[in-house]
Amino acid sequence: MSHLDVQRLFQRAMHRANLPMAYSQGFNPHPIVSFATALAVGYTSISEWVDVKLAKDITETEFIEKMNSALPAGFCVLKAKIVENNAKSLTAIMKAAEYDVTASCDIEDAMHELLSDDIVVTKKTKSGMKEVNIRPDVYAVDAHGSSIHITGRLDAAGGLNIELLMGSLKEKMGGDFGYTVRRTNIIFETEGK
């Protein structure tokens, strides 16, 4: 599912849950629902965060219960917190994210080797192809055989691209292998949100 698909799904669930949705002004009013960040197509996640504005105050418990009765299987609201109207958006305070990557072969040693130096990748930018070192975006890696847990930068400006990291790893190993990615956590500036 694409990010747009997820957004639409969430909005429809809010409508089904009969929540007092707040709408944007303008010619095409739309519900004010905004995910902290998009999830790449094909990735799974157990931790996504979303800003939602309602037209009327309701309790966190009511929100969770109503949403969970209206969301399709596989989607679930785990936690909700009321914030001030002028609170910074989740996207603005987002700092990092954690991922579990499971590969079809042992990548432990290769990953450690890769991380011991700069990781220069070619990125497509507006002005053409550009060489970038993504090593500083990798904050922590815990590798065991075919499973690795990665913490990487993720903020409003962008962050660690797992695909590029795995691409470099494949290049280093000189072979192709399959892998799945699951986002396990998003870390924000203010804890407890």
Binding site: Q11, R12, A13, M14, H15, R16, A17, N18, A70
Partner: peptide
């Protein structure tokens, strides 16, 4: 139908 789908 609107209630059970959430369509807009």
């Amino acid at each position: 139908l609107i209630n059970c789908t959430g369509y807009d």
